[in-house]
Nucleic acid binder design. Structure first.
Length: 484
RNA sequence: GGGGCUGUGGUGUAGUUUGGUUUAGCAUUAGAGGUUUGGGACCUCUCGACCCCGGUUCAAAUCCGGGCAGCCCCA
């Protein structure tokens, strides 16, 4: 047990567990930083202002990019009549174990029970079939930002596995297969920007196996992310639906030749889960580290003074706050706390930059800047502070992304036989291997490794060897790991 | 899906083994006031808890059963 831990144990203030005890660290870190809180309903989280702001930023940046490529926002109801949910068999089968139902209103039993949406394909496509008549109505590119409920029975993990979560669900419709397929790069491109350039997360794109793909899709691709405990979590995803829903919901249009055709569709989403992924990846023993681009507070100003210098210092900090108003900035002028307390507090909450300013600094026209990622402190002239903060924020982002890339790289190894695979999974690695494509082998891999799954197929790599389980000629290069 | 551990103020805990000593103790947070402020300051006062339901008993935070919730491990 480290000195720090003992100290905190006595004080009961900071994070009490080291990051290598991941689960405990994770729940403590996000609760103590006021990202989320538990609610009376198991698996349903409360987003507190500090956490919700992160989502607002992610949402805003994503939405901006959606709009740039012609996507329009809509809002569909929370409830889906049972008759609609039943229309596409595979879809229903995939979701029905997790659907929550409304059966009663007041004392009246409903004539038809209503599903609380686990996702909105069925409701939206019912409307699409009425709205789409001719080739002139296409492409139709709608999206909604909302909440969905999937009543999971595995134990919930804040943000990473919750029964209700927030997301975007994009539902686009095209006249041709080519157009629909072309959208994949656009959408995954946007999601990748959000993950890499905003959240400093290094991920990789996988194509899901038949058993792991979205219920009702032709194929699913997802950006997968690795957590420090070796578990892989599915991030934003893209589903190519082909004409499956078009047939089930009779979404047809008259083409230019006057002939009726079924449409081609896609579905795609980014969820609040990415916040959990991000916080899990970047934090350290002191608590969270929030990447600057999505940090609710990018820099916090902590004034330091003796009583007789109070007015002078506070005046200066207010000037500084104004000068830095293009950043998301907070002046922590709480009076009952010592600077030391504030330092720890903001470090735990993951604010990227702390600006200390006291009489000594004022005399020299400078401030002390402390970086959350490296802990380094340096003095900076007030004159150049805008530029410097910009530079440091940028550098913190780069550093965090690099760390995330390194973690992924270090955590990934190749295995050519089951023994090596089992050992690697035990060592919490992400494993690259080859697979014949048979479901039976896929299931055996899961059994033999005590629960690791084929995350997905690496389409960039050509399989040359043998299936890791059966030894027959391999079809695919795949990633295997334990997941959340 | 299976197994284990744990539920005491907002948070962390003492008390549970061996039922009664307790008006459920301590720390922290929060609220009020005062003194402080360069890495978790101090003093005074105030608010605030035995997860729920049932059982055993003269007596239950404590024992038993069920439920709910959280955590961990396995499938």
């Amino acid at each position: 047990m480290s000195k720090k831990k003992v100290k905190n144990k006595k004080k009961n203030l900071g994070i009490e567990s080291e990051k290598d005890e991941f689960s405990e660290w994770y729940s403590q870190a996000i609760i103590k930083a006021h990202i989320v809180d538990y609610s009376p309903i198991s698996g349903c989280m409360i987003f507190k202002p500090f956490g919700y702001k992160i989502w607002e930023i992610i949402k805003e940046e994503t939405d901006k990019r959606f709009k740039k490529i012609g996507i329009k926002n809509v809002y569909f109801p929370l409830f889906i009549p049972e008759s609609l949910l039943k229309k596409e068999a595979t879809h229903l089968k995939g979701f029905s174990p997790e659907v929550a139902w409304v059966t009663q209103a007041g004392k009246t039993k409903l004539a038809e029970r209503l599903a609380i949406r686990p996702t909105s394909e069925t409701l939206m496509y019912n409307s699409y079939s009425k709205w789409i008549r001719s080739w002139r109505d296409l492409p139709l590119k709608y999206n909604q930002w909302n909440n969905v409920v999937r009543w999971e029975f595995r134990h919930p993990i804040p943000l990473l596995r919750t029964r209700e979560f927030l997301w975007n669900e994009g539902h686009t419709v095209f006249a041709t297969k080519q157009e629909a397929l072309k959208e994949e790069k656009q959408i995954l491109g946007i999601y990748n920007i959000i993950l890499r350039d905003y959240m400093a997360i290094a991920g990789f794109i996988s194509k899901k196996t038949e058993s792991e793909k979205f219920a009702g899709a032709e194929f699913t691709k997802a950006i997968e992310c690795m957590l420090p405990n070796g578990r892989v979590v599915q991030g934003p995803d893209f589903h190519y639906d082909g004409q499956i829903f078009a047939r089930a919901f009779n979404i047809q249009f008259l083409n230019k030749q006057g002939k009726k055709e079924y449409v081609w569709q896609n579905t795609w989403a980014i969820t609040t889960r990415v916040i959990g992924i991000m916080l899990a990846i970047h934090g350290d023993n002191k608590g969270l580290i929030i990447p600057p681009k999505v940090a609710p507070i990018q820099a916090v100003i902590v004034p330091i003074f003796k009583t007789k210098e109070k007015e002078k210092v506070l005046k200066k900090t207010k000037e500084l706050e104004k000068k830095l108003n293009k950043f998301r900035i907070l002046l922590d002028n709480r009076e009952d706390y010592t600077p030391g307390y504030k330092f720890h507090d903001w470090e735990m909450k993951g604010v990227p930059i702390r600006i200390e300013i006291g009489p000594k600094d004022i005399a020299k026209n400078q401030v002390v800047i402390a970086r959350r990622d490296t802990g380094k402190k340096e003095s900076i002239k007030i004159k150049n502070i805008d530029e410097e903060i910009n530079k440091i924020l940028d550098d913190i982002h780069k550093n965090l992304l690099k760390k995330s890339e390194n973690m992924l790289k270090k955590g990934t190894i190749t295995a050519k036989n089951m023994l090596a695979l089992i050992k690697a999974i035990k060592n919490k690695k992400l494993v690259i291997s080859e697979w014949c494509g048979d479901k039976e082998c896929e299931d055996w891999i899961k059994t033999k490794t005590a629960g690791a799954k084929i995350i997905g197929i690496n389409e960039q790599a050509i399989a040359k060897g043998k299936c890791i389980y059966c030894g027959k000629k391999a079809q695919y290069t795949v990633w295997i790991a334990k997941t959340y």
